[in-house]
Nucleic acid binder design. Sequence first.
DNA 1: GCGACAG
DNA 2: ATCTTGTCGC
Length: 232
Amino acid sequence: MDVRFPTDPRAARQAQEQLRSRVCLSPLPGWPELVAGLDCAFREKGRQIVGAAVVMDRRTRRTVAEKTLWLETPFPYVPGLLSFREGPVLYELVQALRPQPELLMFDGQGIAHPARLGIAAHLGVLLDIPSVGVAKSRLYGVAEEPGTAAGSWTSLHGREGELGVLLRTRERVRAVYVSPGHRCSIDDARRLVLDWSLGWRLPHPLHLADRLSRRDRTASAGVSGKMSQQIP
DNA sequence: GCGACAG
DNA sequence: ATCTTGTCGC
Ligand SMILES: [Mg+2]
């Protein structure tokens, strides 16, 4: 399939308007057995980007696949257009993943976005895989501060309605912004993230993808386009 | 016009 | 995101 990511802000915003109608918030088809965490890191003053994917099994809680991919950074960081910067490398990465995950977790917003198309919603639609966005800070929408207990949450909403939740994944950590990406409801997104929150502020697959991307940034003498994979 | 502003 | 050591608090 010929998926194109615009290289300029103008075209990017037009693409968002074109894609937003394809986002679906139906409940998850089933509780996902294989969940992937996706994140990125940079080097060379941001000129190169590395995407990292960690696939985990819900039953064993073990990592079943890891993969990284380097590319030339295609887009600058512009609030609201993050998916055009980190999306291209993560899109390629997910397509090359084996086994294919049943759900994708992104380090960023899902529909809690001015165009309802944060990176989780955008990539979820392009790949047609259920997805969830988990952001460490707010981009769009408002929410009250949740209680201090792990699992406490409050509703995140915009003028158009409910967008997600502000969730306290653990005690004594700052709450995270959870919103569905594609083919997932707000309730399922919250339950999914909490179910994978054990030990860290971010759900395990995302925590590991974050570590993997930064590790590769230093360790790899990676040439752009190089892909690596290990199966622990 | 003035702030806000995922990573 | 990245630049970067020690330091404050438990
Ligand atoms: Mg990140």
